[in-house]
Design a protein around this nucleic acid. Structure first.
Length: 871
RNA sequence: GGGCGCGUAGCUCAGUGGGAGAGCGCUCGCUUCACACGCGAGAGGUCGCUGGUUCGAAACCAGCCGCGCCCACCA
């Protein structure tokens, strides 16, 4: 280390993330560490594909958690020496882009409609060029080691080819078809949306009872509805076939009020005789349930509500042009005039809303493209049933399967412009339809002009191809060979159906295998008060602000530490804990690096950087053994997706064992220039940095820039490609652990005593080892508990095992006696409790032998301690 | 209507059959030559309630109370 760097290290008593992170990131990128060669096989390599963020998106807490988890896994595997790819890309996000641009255009006093398709798309591309890479830059801030040189966008030419290939193939197989069917119309985005994009909300409405006169009689049939305006499209009235009350009416006609249409009274099992009057007005054009009934009975499908959410001309002159709410009032007023409103009552029920625009869904009959799911679902269901695709936590498996078992056709066309325009052409002259990857020139039948379908595909249609699309499929690219299938998918539970299930289906259909092995479902991070984190509620916390304030490592550690199988509230304390850990690592490293003499290093370097450790004392063997346990625990936790425990185990080892005890114990030897302890410390530091790197990459990499020259520069150029530590069984040492832990306990006892008795912290107390007491207490106790064994004589004030503390000027003897009495009392209680337990025959005979044995040992220990206090 | 999950220290959460844990907060004490984003010591819990299984339950079972989420075409 040159003098200047050394001086800087000495002066920097606080780790400054903002000063470090940009510099370290640049070196990773320059070094090409995130850009693996497309070599080897997917079985040997490690790969993941990022859930492609929306181009409109800014990094939110969900991305931050997801990316931190991805990155921990990616870095872990890269350090294990696997050829590792984190495939990166962004999603075109039709609806979101439309929403953003429409807002801009409105501000300019125009609209997409006025602009027209071509100009709108031009504008969308401009917008994408300008803002689309924002989130990618933000991922870098987090330290995400994606392959930034292989970035994909779902509207790239290659990706479009993949989408078209899939569409055409599914069409050829008969899975994709065009049909007139009831769909979820979202007047907000002016498009149809899929069932999955609909959310049902509890709404308080009014249930109206309306009299429908029966033809050629004075009787009426009373129906119940919350949407009186839809009566204008009624084409029947239905009753349950088993309902005695109405049996005679079946086959007769009602006269639809206000309209005058004849409505047959039909019998259908769907009708619940218990509900309201047991008579259902049937509106096949505007209610999904009625649509089914209508199709079953061959009823007319009348439409009175248009795609703009307003009443159409077919609603009649009085109502045409009104919104549905206005129409409802107008219809009710007209019915009241005729005395046909029989009753009204408050009624709570669930109503569909668009998850995209937030507007109420209007069920409409529309000509759309659909994808049948039965065939596609088969292998995707089996593979999860068999556990070849494994959900973590496992409970999501049931939820996935439950959905797969009752899949319905997926409406895949959208009335938008930004996206993959359907590869479908129509000939208006002869009504031929062409589905092809490339536009046909003319109609093959009549040579007529062709017109391409105006619609684009559901954004999730293209996302479903992501794991192989991102690797260049349908071309047989080297990337595809090297990295498909991927190893694990990490995502949030809200897109298990929208995305995960569809990827599995498409994976099987087009590559013959599942696109990933494990599916890890992350926590959802809520606001600290337990509400949803959202911009509109004002409950969002910006990860970039947090990175700014606490450093990327702090944010990463905090997110991992708070992650769980449950949803969790955002914990600022956990982030702070991570920041503190980074600072602690920095300062512990300073202690070692500034005091270890590099010329002291001896021995061979194997794999890493520092020659193996040179333990000479029991505490050296102790910390090396503890380090092995920590490596084992962290590794196991990372491999089993238990990130919180991985993070907290690292913290515990580093702070509570390495810093609190070993560094304090070893310090004097380090200052004295002992070569062995210096080497041991440098080796432990190297191992620990590598262990922590997947979770806290920046601070560990920064420290490595000091460690490497200090250690002679033999190892890997950067920590990012340093071998991940492996447990060395030869370093596990139970005897050393027991011995040092006993010393730690002794130290704690002495400190507790000092504190209680009120000895000044700085004063060193005379102490000795009781006669015939065997081995003297370890010298580390003397240092850590501030005792001196310089042969002083005197009365013992207190004893801890063989250790006696002698009276001196600083101690109040009466206070000491009182405390000792209390301690004895407590120990007697412990002895009694243990004795009682061991007297319990049930316990002794039924509990496992080692449990009983452990209890006996405890009892003996308490008895011994008590005995010692008697002196 | 069906399903999933949660209720543990003041707060946020671990712990899933052998004597209640972490971080923060709180109290007391420390400019101890890596770190005050620090060091040492401590207080604080009838583990939602009621029953059961067990020698032993925070953990397993049943019921109840409270909270959250997902799925579902009863107007």
């Amino acid at each position: 280390m040159d003098a200047e760097r050394r001086a800087r290290l000495e002066a920097t008593t606080r780790y400054e993330p903002s000063e470090v992170e940009g510099r370290i990131l640049a070196r990773w990128l320059e070094g090409g560490y995130f850009h693996p060669p497309a070599e080897g096989t997917a079985a040997d390599n490690f790969s993941v594909a990022i859930p492609p963020p929306n181009v409109t998106g800014a990094l939110h807490m969900g991305h931050a958690l997801n990316s931190t988890i991805h990155d921990a896994l990616v870095r872990l595997n890269r350090m294990r020496g696997r050829n590792t790819l984190w495939a990166l890309g962004t999603d075109h996000a039709s609806i979101a882009v439309h929403a953003v641009l429409e807002k801009e255009l409105r501000a300019e006093g125009t609209s997409g409609h006025e602009l027209g398709r071509e100009a709108f798309l031009e504008r969308a591309w401009e917008w994408k060029q300008k803002y689309g890479s924002q989130i990618v830059e933000q991922l870098k801030r987090l330290g995400a080691s994606c392959d930034y040189e292989r970035e994909r966008f779902t509207l790239d030419d290659g990706y479009v080819r993949a989408v078209y290939r899939v569409f055409v193939s599914l069409h050829e197989k008969g899975h994709i078809y065009r049909d007139t069917y009831m769909v979820n119309w979202d007047a907000g985005s002016r498009s149809v949306i899929s069932d999955l994009e609909v959310e049902n909300r509890e709404v308080e409405d009014t249930l109206y009872a309306i009299d429908y006169p029966i033809e050629d009689s004075d009787e009426v049939l009373t129906v119940a509805t919350v949407r009186p305006e839809t009566m204008l499209a009624d084409t029947a009235v239905a009753v349950n076939p088993a309902d005695e009350r109405y049996r005679d009416l079946i086959g007769r006609q009602c006269v639809l009020p206000l309209v005058g249409r004849r409505l047959p009274v039909i019998a259908d099992e769907h009708v619940d005789p218990q509900f309201a009057t047991g008579a259902l007005k049937v509106t096949p054009g505007h209610d999904p349930n009625d649509f089914e009934i209508g199709r079953a009975h061959g009823l007319d499908e009348v439409t009175v509500i248009g795609e703009d959410g307003r009443m159409t001309a077919d609603a009649g002159e009085r109502f045409a042009g009104l919104t549905t709410e206005e129409a409802r009032e107008a219809v009710l007023a007209a019915l009241r005039e005729q005395g046909l409103v029989r009753g009204e009552e408050p009624y709570v029920h669930s109503v569909p809303y668009s998850h995209r625009s937030g507007e109420r869904i209007e069920p409409l009959i529309s000509l759309q493209w659909f994808c049948r799911m039965e065939e596609l679902a088969k292998p995707a269901t089996e593979v999860v049933e068999r556990g070849q695709v494994r959900f973590v936590p496992e409970r999501w498996k049931l939820i996935y399967l439950d959905w797969m078992y009752r899949l319905r056709p997926w409406c895949i066309s959208r009335q938008l412009w930004w996206g993959h325009r359907l590869p479908v052409w129509y000939c208006d002259a002869c009504e031929e339809t062409y589905v092809a990857e490339a536009a046909p020139e003319r109609c093959g039948a009549c040579e007529g002009e062709l017109r391409q379908d105006e619609d684009v595909l559901d954004t999730w249609f293209s996302s479903a191809l992501w794991p192989f699309g991102v690797l260049g499929w349908p071309e047989q690219t080297p990337e595809l060979r090297a990295f498909y299938p991927t190893d694990v998918l990490v995502t949030a539970r809200d897109i298990i159906f929208l995305w995960v299930a569809r990827m599995v289906m498409m994976g099987f259909e087009f590559t013959g295998e599942a696109p990933f092995g494990d599916v890890y479902i992350t926590s959802v991070i809520q606001a600290p008060d337990g509400r949803r984190m959202s911009k509109s509620l004002g409950t969002g916390i910006d990860p970039l602000d947090e990175i700014e304030a606490h450093g990327a490592d702090g944010v990463r550690f905090g997110l991992l530490a708070m992650s769980s199988a449950q949803d969790v509230r955002y914990s600022a304390d956990r982030i702070q804990q991570g920041q503190d850990l980074a600072n602690k690592m920095w300062n512990a490293s300073r202690l070692i690096l500034l005091n270890a003499r590099p010329d002291a290093l001896r021995g061979e370097v194997a794999g890493g950087l520092v020659p193996g450790p040179r333990p000479v004392r029991v505490e050296d063997r102790w910390i090396l053994s503890r380090l092995q346990e920590a490596i084992q625990a962290v590794t196991r936790n990372l491999d089993s997706y238990d990130f919180a425990h991985a993070a907290l185990e690292l913290y515990r080892f580093f702070w509570s064992e390495l810093c609190d005890w070993y560094l304090e114990i070893a310090k004097p030897r380090l200052y004295e220039g002992e070569a062995e302890v210096a080497q041991t410390l440098l080796w432990i530091l190297e191992q620990t940095l590598a262990l922590a790197h997947p979770m806290a990459p920046f601070v560990t990499e920064e420290i490595y820039t000091y460690l490497r020259p200090a250690a002679g520069g033999a190892g890997p150029a950067m920590l990012v490609v340093h071998p991940f530590p492996e447990v060395d069984g030869a370093l596990l040492d139970d005897a050393a652990e027991r011995e040092v832990e006993a010393s730690i306990e002794l130290t704690r006892s002495v400190r507790r005593w000092r504190d209680l008795v009120g000895v000044a912290p700085a004063s060193v107390l005379p102490a000795r080892v009781a006669e015939g007491g065997g081995e003297p207490p370890h010298e580390l106790v003397a240092r850590l508990a501030r005792l001196s064994f310089d042969g002083a004589e005197g009365e013992p004030l207190a004893s801890f095992g063989q250790l006696e503390i002698l009276s001196s000027g600083d101690v109040d003897a009466s206070q000491v006696r009182r405390r000792i009495a209390e301690l004895r009392e407590r120990l007697r209680g412990e002895v009694e409790r243990a004795e009682r337990k061991l007297d319990n025959q049930g316990f002794v005979s039924n509990a496992p032998a080692e449990v009983v044995e452990a209890e006996r040992e405890k009892l003996n220990a308490f008895r011994a301690e008590l005995e010692e206090l008697q002196g």
